[in-house]
Design a protein around this nucleic acid. Structure first.
Length: 513
RNA sequence: GUCCCGUUCGUCUAGCCAGGCCUAGGACUCCAGAUUUUCAUUCUGGCAACACGGGUUCAAAUCCCGUACGGGAUACCA
């Protein structure tokens, strides 16, 4: 069997978390079986479909790393891939169904349909279309036509039958056709509805597996019946559980950011988002939940998707992002972080271009301190920006010891005599290449340059502490505050090294008295 | 209301289909400890679950039935 799966969004809004997961599962199922993954745009709702939404969806899919073999911008032999361009096919199938008696014309106005629905409800019956035009004669039809009414096309639902939908995720789902109404296949304006266009296209595009949210479970049953009316073999269905918000209801904009592109804009690693979203309803293995898309493809099956809804957990998502950030090679990390740092004005473009090693060292110092790229600018700005804002904790550390002012002056004097590298934007030579940061994880970075390395700086400072009769641990806090404006961050000597001589002296002396 | 689906630590999950290896494993969170110039990282340890009730069986988280609770669907939206 040729394996072909599709993601079929309607362009009525941006790609959201749930849609992305559906796309990922379809993609993974296709790749896992060496099949084809295609994208089809279901734009039969003229009012709500927009070109802007389409672009956001395409961009969202690309951003999480999904590529489609057929579809918009990719082409393919089963196009067009926009339902609005396939109207002739729906019309042909509609006619075929009409001729076969599997569908019929309904001239009821929306008001009449609603009125019938209410009447049924009042009688204690299931509220649905009351089938008032199910058996219209040709003459009656002609009468409605003459009166200027336009017909919609409805499916002639079997009245009393048990149908079974074999579902890859849920197992056999049995439903009585009495629960289903004579649903509209083609609107009065000639546009097909979801269930109809979906089946016509899945057939034409030779879709082998339909994987979609479980809100479509009943649609699956309706579609099964339509396949039968068409004497066609239905695809295999897999209705996957929903992604839930904290309240346990379907995830909505109220619960969290649901637009995929918002995560891009906030600086989430796309691979991490892909990874996290994939775990919402599917487990990689008993002892791992961080995995690559390739690894996922190796063992993904639709049957392996869970049955229960999964709550979206932002904390866990962040934790996974952090793992990806930490596993990223520094050069790659710099590349990814650059747009965020530049946009925020935290690191000038010139620094990236003319001082790549300095920037790499600075970023490396924060690799284990951020979960997403977007967190970096605010943390790293002190390295390149002179208008330091002192936070409360830092201000407190400056005042904590009476001698702090004198200490800072002494440290400044000592550093003035030391071979500290120059400050950005002065040329730092190969200082940053010779001394790779961070150095605080056990072994101080050492290098062979004309300049002091972080180990030398530590030695100088410890010695000074002795001379001052101050505890080294006490000395550190006001220095850090004066240099960075915070009480957190890289090791103190990495800070000095990054900042360079002039900046260190200036900041130290600004708080020396 | 009716129909359908679901229910393993607070959360995501492994185990369930092929019952014993489960005194239920991993991850996130939280707590404690180690490392340490701060923060973070890393490491060690800890808290914490088979919704409930029946059955089948020598044996049930795993199979069956019921109950409760949760969710979804009931559109000329998708």
């Amino acid at each position: 069997m040729t394996v072909r799966l599709r993601f079929a969004p309607s362009p009525t809004g941006p790609l959201h978390i749930g849609g992305a997961r559906t796309a990922i599962y379809n993609w993974a199922a296709a790749r896992a079986q060496g099949g084809t993954f295609l994208l089809r745009i279901e734009d039969t709702d003229r009012e709500r479909s927009t070109a802007a939404s389409l672009q956001m969806i395409l961009e969202g899919l690309r951003w999480v790393g999904l590529r489609w073999d057929e579809g918009p911008e990719a082409g393919g032999e089963h196009g067009p891939y926009f339902q609005s361009e396939r109207l002739d096919r729906y019309a042909a199938t509609a006619q075929q169904l009409l001729d076969a008696g599997a569908a019929y014309r309904c001239y009821a106005t929306p008001e009449e349909v609603e009125e019938g629905r209410r009447a049924l409800q009042e009688r204690g019956e299931r509220p649905m279309y009351d089938r008032r035009h199910r058996d219209l004669t040709d003459a009656q039809c002609a009468e409605f036509e003459a009166a200027g009414r336009r017909a919609s096309l409805r499916f002639r639902m079997p009245l009393d039958e048990r149908v079974v939908l074999p579902d890859l995720c849920k197992g056999d789902v049995e439903v009585h056709t009495a629960e289903l109404d004579d649903w509209v296949m083609v609107r009065a304006d000639g546009m097909p509805t979801y269930n109809f266009a979906c089946v016509v296209d899945d057939l034409a595009m030779q879709i082998s597996h339909v994987v979609r949210g479980e809100e479509h479970l009943m649609n699956g049953v309706k579609q099964m019946l339509l396949y039968r009316a068409l004497s066609a073999e239905p695809p295999r269905f897999g209705h996957i559980p929903l992604i839930l918000g904290p309240s346990g209801k379907k995830l909505s904009k109220r619960d969290a950011q649901t637009n995929i592109l918002d995560y891009r804009d906030r600086g989430f690693p796309p691979e991490a988002l892909f990874n996290y979203i994939s775990t919402l309803g599917w487990g990689f293995s008993g002892d791992r939940d961080v995995f690559s898309a390739d690894e996922m493809v190796e063992r993904f099956t639709v049957e392996g998707i869970g049955k229960a809804g999964a709550k979206f957990d932002e904390q866990k998502m962040m934790a996974i992002c952090g793992q990806y950030v930490r596993a990223t090679p520094i050069d790659e990390l710099v590349r990814r972080v650059r747009p965020f740092c530049e946009a925020a004005g935290a690191v000038p473009a010139a620094a990236f271009d003319a001082h790549p090693d300095l920037v790499a060292n600075a970023v490396a110092c924060y690799q284990e301190r951020i979960d997403i790229y977007g967190e970096l600018p605010a943390k790293i700005a002190w390295v390149f920006t002179d208008d330091l804002t002192m936070d409360d904790a830092a201000a407190k550390n400056l005042r904590k010891y009476e001698a702090a002012g004198a200490w800072l002056a002494a440290v400044a004097d000592r550093l003035e005599a030391a071979d500290l590298p120059p400050s950005y934007p002065d040329d730092r030579g190969d200082a940053d290449r010779a001394c790779r940061l961070p150095s605080s994880d056990g072994s101080p970075a050492a290098g062979s340059t004309p300049f002091a390395n972080t180990a030398d700086l530590e030695q100088v400072t410890r010695q000074l502490a002795d001379e001052l009769g101050a505890k080294f641990g006490h000395l550190v806090h006001p220095i850090r505050a004066a240099l960075t404006g915070t009480n957190k961050g890289p090791g103190l000597f990495d800070v000095m090294f990054l900042l360079g001589k002039q900046r260190c002296l200036r900041r130290l002396r600004a708080h020396a008295s």
